[in-house]
């Protein structure tokens, strides 16, 4: 009885050893290929993100003659860190995340933005039962004192940073909301849903997302309405890593910028891409446009 068992064990040991060796060998780094990796902050539903960046990757690959991959990072700070560590080469960042990424990656450049990104707005919305009247000046935000209030995602420029900034200008800090703190719904759509349900009495989100939700009939105008539209600020932009010219040949960054700026609704695929970005064209962007956001970010401790 013992003999076959020992044999089984011995055989087992050899097999295990072989497997360990095999597993060890596969951990060795594979060869580095020159692939242009594009990414984005996760501010849309995944299916739209996949279509948007999948088509863009194909388009850029055809134009630039290099392999392009979309890497779907699902977390704002992860996208920033992936850009810093060189795992992403070209990223569609929001205002705040773009500045964080550029500050952490010396030499990173702003390539382009959409026309609306130069003058982006947030809206403050309120549940009709909260008794909040439309606000005409920034001081009117004082009415939110003591209400249940929610932002969107922690790193969102239009769903958190700028609304918190305007609230601070009116003298309202998150501590003054009901419960001593603001909620963080995680996304613009969740903010609409939670304010519409009445769980939160008011919230702030990106104006384009609000407009789309209204257009698609996802908003009940009897339950939730806009009480204030913020002054405009700079938002989304393409940011590119500094070392692309070394990796893909001289002048690659310029070619990449031309390819993005050159996207036009004349060609079927390019038209699709622009539609998915809700843009007519991409336009050049200046770093200086984002200076005000950087200052706000520093004031509120989101940029260190």
């Amino acid at each position: 009885m013992t003999k076959p068992l020992t044999r089984v064990r011995k055989k087992g040991a050899v097999v295990l050893l072989a497997l360990f060796c095999g597993q060890g060998a596969t951990v060795l780094p594979a060869q580095a290929q020159s692939i242009l990796r594009i990414g984005a902050i996760p501010d849309q539903n995944p299916e739209r993100l996949n279509r948007r960046y999948g088509q863009l990757a194909t388009e850029l690959s055809d134009q630039l003659k290099v392999p392009v991959r979309y890497v779907p990072v699902s977390n704002y700070p992860a996208a920033v860190s992936a850009f810093r560590t060189g795992s992403l080469d070209l990223v569609w960042f929001g205002g705040l995340t773009g500045i964080q990424a550029r500050l952490q990656t010396p030499g990173a450049q702003v390539l382009a933005q959409r026309a609306i990104d130069a003058n982006f707005n947030s809206v403050f919305i309120a549940n009709t039962s909260a008794g909040l009247q439309p606000i005409s000046s920034i001081d009117g935000l004082k009415a939110l004192n003591g209400k249940r209030f929610t932002f969107g995602s922690e790193s969102s420029t239009s769903g958190r940073l700028m609304p918190q900034h305007f609230l601070a200008q009116a003298g309202v800090t998150p501590k003054q909301f009901a419960g001593g703190q603001a909620g963080f719904s995680g996304s613009h759509d969740a903010t609409i849903a939670l304010v519409q349900s009445g769980s939160y009495q008011a919230g702030a989100l990106s104006e384009p997302v609000w407009n789309v939700a209204v257009k698609n009939g996802k908003v009940d105008p009897n339950k939730v309405k806009v009480i204030w539209k913020t002054p405009s600020f700079g938002n989304y932009h393409w940011v590119v890593r500094p070392n692309l010219d070394q990796r893909f040949g001289k002048g690659f960054t310029t070619k990449l910028q031309k390819a993005i700026l050159g996207l036009a609704p004349t060609n079927e695929r390019q038209k699709n891409i622009l539609e998915l970005f809700a843009a007519q064209r991409f336009v050049p962007a200046q770093e200086s446009q984002y200076q005000p956001i950087e200052e706000v970010g520093r004031q509120l401790g989101k940029i260190r």
């Binding site: 996760p42 849309q44 539903n45 995944p46 779907p72 992936a82 795992s87 992403l88 996304s187 759509d189």
Partner: peptide
Amino acid sequence: GLGGLGTELQLTLQSL
């Protein structure tokens, strides 16, 4: 950036 089922769930939930 690996995607996966969890990511799919997280992002579809965020966008309701």
